[in-house]
Amino acid sequence: MRKTILSIVTALAAVASTLVVLTGPAQAHGYISSPPSRQANCAQGRVANCGPIIYEPQSVEGPKGQRNCHGGLSQFAQLSDESKPWPATSVGQNVTFNWVLTARHATSTWEYFIGNTRVAVFNDGGRQPGATVSHNVNLGGFSGRQRLLAVWNIADTPMAFYSCVDLQIGGGGNPNPQPSPTPTVTPRPPSPTPTVTPPPAGGTWRTGTYYATGSTVTYGGATYRCLQAHTSLAGWEPPNVPALWARV
């Protein structure tokens, strides 16, 4: 147990020190979460072998004026690799793009491109954005599979943040875009559906599993009883989260 934690810590430390060498101290940040951008698909584990972007999907920051998915950063070059099996989200002509922001920089504009066409621009006039940002964009008649590039232009630096979103654009205006089937990507973790029957008593604890209150698991040779229904996650191992598990 302790060994596991130590090895995780060691691994994280190794990753962290690598990233510091590559990117310098943490800067500021944002990306499109839905429909999922390429970096969101990487961070979610839906697309494999993405490189260090999985740790910081918010950090695709490069000089303004670029038209690539990786902001010109070599460590994130996988984001522009068109041979990767990027899942495309099925959408209509009107799409709401939602951003995760981890720092709210004063903003000049948010631009959306398909190919060389700028399909939308939102001018914030140097204001600081809210904690979350969403834009409704009309895709201007484009159809079929398209790679949309979103650019967040910062007002008081020469930098911008880049997010590419793969879309399968159908007709009509579907207000609730659904993800398309994604046969080529890594399997998703099981959905947390509260109606699932509790795992059999004494099963071994696993991540991505829904545990009902009162169900029991074994972990590290001990048995634990679930105190609060939840879907298990790495870092929520029973001995580490007394709020969720009591040793029997």
């Binding site: 994280l12 839905s34 961070a43 979610q44 947390p192 996650l233 870092g235």
Partner: peptide, 20 residues
Amino acid sequence: GRIAASRAAQIQEMLRLLAA
């Protein structure tokens, strides 16, 4: 180390919920 791991897993779960 556990906070880094569990928050990364929470982010994955939230991105999954946002994508679906």
